[in-house]
Design a protein around this nucleic acid. Structure first.
Length: 519
DNA sequence: GAAATGGTTGGCGCA
DNA sequence: CTGCGCCAACCATTT
């Protein structure tokens, strides 16, 4: 053992991309001719080890991913080394200990990762360690897209992005196999009792917190779920049209629920696209299943090239709107804690907290309600809640969707507001979804399930649910605040863009206007 | 450069 | 139960 430890090692640093299949950066480490063995590493960065930042459901999911990774690596006579602490401190210690000469990792587009990786590269340069990265979180390398775009502006619509990338870059690379047992993958039997994958209870900040999510982490589970879905629901895969799926389907969701696995890279988007394509889907992007992967591609790219993408201030594509900002705002708290008095909204927020997942349209409903629809609270607050509670929380997609729903970017038809009453009604007229996640409303007649405050007191008594005692009164009058908010939005747009002139005089304007186009 | 087109997924009242 | 016009009139992109 002492002999092998004097030989040069390659370290593959897992961050996302928690998989062995389609992992070219890992293969780079395995196949590198000038290093003798490979050390697969994950670093538990304390910045993420806080329940206020990463909820217990996602932390548990991550640990399960690491356990699975370790088990899969052991089948290759390797293992996972879990470091604990800031990677900028822990990695160099590890590098010195094992004479590292090559570091490989998956390219990451997020702001925190970008600055962290820049510092790690600098550090490796000082230590004489070569660094090689591959972009495999998405179908395409974002840098390839940027290069092709050149001086052109960033496409801000799905269609223009999709058209440009498919035309200029053609098909994405095909997915690679996991390293074979005889691939020369060698890891020494060292430090067997250290660098192990911790259990949740070993993480001090998470002690005593209950894991409720039904999602089990790991590449093995990801591949199993994907293949199950493709086999058992092949017809749905072929005819899949996202807007036609139901947000109230429970416990069997109307979508694949693979998002947590894509978030952590347990599943390669390239592999998924290839497997779906083999079933010859009938629909096309943007609504098709493969079209969903392209939404991810689009939002990841725009998030990558847009400064301050995660906030309103300094974000060049974000509408400037005077939202309520305070995190202690009673409205925000009521929304987050499922106390708005609108059963559909509250049921969604309970599912989010319990399962760490919501159907896309349910996310729309609660996001619209918090921001432009009803409560006029900043999308950044809602983003934070989602970021903490979603198992699939992804920086780019989460921020992009909040920008979208608040009509701050991408989507601009702010007068299209989701009704917290009629929207769920068309999917689930009896409110089964609400009854499950809000058992207090279990016996409320279907007629009042989305509007229990309208139920006569005798009906409330019979249902054992008195509004104002057992379940709250509605926090706002949707019909009223919706109008108010539309007016606010209009005013914000006028204030923020004084150069823009209405093409036609507005009807509610008092001016007897003939001012068609002024300068 | 002006005008037209289109935008994954709204709600409502009415025929 | 479906389709249509209306609500009020957004923005990015194409023509």
């Amino acid at each position: 053992m002492r002999v092998i430890l004097t030989m040069a090692s390659a370290v593959h640093w897992f961050r996302k991309g928690l998989r062995l299949h389609d992992n070219p950066a890992l293969l780079d480490a395995v196949q590198n001719p000038t290093t003798t063995y490979v050390l697969p590493v994950f670093c538990l960065d304390p910045i993420f080890l806080r329940p206020e930042t990463v909820g217990v459901n996602r932390m548990n999911f991550l640990l399960e991913c690491l356990q699975d990774l370790d088990q899969q690596l052991r089948k290759l006579h390797s293992r996972l080394f879990v470091l604990r602490g800031n990677p900028l401190e822990q990695l160099p210690v590890f590098f010195r200990k094992y004479h590292t000469r090559l570091l490989t990792f998956e390219f990451d587009t997020e702001p925190y990762a970008k600055q962290r990786d820049t510092q790690v590269r600098r550090l490796c340069a000082e230590l004489g360690i070569e660094v090689r990265t591959r972009a495999t979180h998405t179908l395409y390398d974002p840098e390839d897209i940027r290069r092709e775009l050149g001086d052109r502006p960033t496409p801000l619509t799905y269609k223009s992005f999709y058209a440009f990338v498919t035309e200029r870059l053609g098909q994405p690379m095909s997915a690679l196999d996991a390293p074979a047992p005889a691939s020369g993958f060698q890891t020494p039997d060292v430090d067997l009792d250290t660098y192990t994958v911790p259990s949740l209870s070993e993480l001090e900040a998470y002690q005593g917190l209950e894991v409720e999510t039904p999602f089990r982490g790991g590449e093995t589970e990801a591949l199993r779920r994907m293949e199950n879905f493709l086999r058992e629901r092949a017809d749905e895969v072929r005819s899949f049209a996202k807007p036609a799926t139901s947000p109230t389907a429970w416990p069997v969701a109307s979508t694949t629920q693979l998002s947590p696995y894509f978030k952590f890279g347990c599943l390669s988007p390239r592999l998924f696209v290839e497997r779906v394509r083999s079933l010859r889907p009938l629909q096309q992007p943007p609504v098709s299943l493969i079209g969903q992967i392209w939404w991810r591609e689009f939002f990841t790219y725009v998030a990558y090239v847009t400064p301050h993408f995660h906030q309103m201030q300094g974000n060049p594509i974000c509408r400037q709107i005077p939202w309520r900002e305070a995190a202690d705002d009673a409205r925000y708290r009521a929304w987050e804690e499922a106390r708005t008095g609108y059963p559909w909204i509250d049921a969604c927020m309970v599912q989010l907290r319990q399962e760490g997942w919501l159907h896309h349209l349910a996310r729309h409903a609660v996001a619209c309600f918090l921001t432009r629809g009803d409560l006029w609270v900043s999308w950044e607050r809602g983003r934070e809640t989602f970021d903490r509670l979603l198992v699939d929380a992804d920086y780019s997609l989460n921020n992009a969707n909040w920008l979208w729903l608040s009509s701050s970017a991408f989507f601009h038809q702010y007068y299209r507001v989701y009704s917290p009453i009629s929207f769920p009604q068309k999917y689930d007229p009896n409110g089964e979804y609400v009854r499950h996640f809000l058992p207090v409303l279990k016996e409320m007649p279907s007629k009042y399930i989305y509007t229990p405050w309208l139920a006569p007191v005798v009906v409330q008594k019979k249902a054992k649910c008195i509004i104002g005692e057992d379940y709250p009164h509605p926090i706002v009058d949707h019909a009223v605040v919706m109008r108010e908010n539309m007016r606010r939005m209009r005013e914000a747009l006028d204030a923020g863009a004084p150069q823009r002139v209405p093409k036609r005089p507005r009807r509610d304007a008092n001016e007897a206007s003939s001012s068609s186009s002024s300068s």
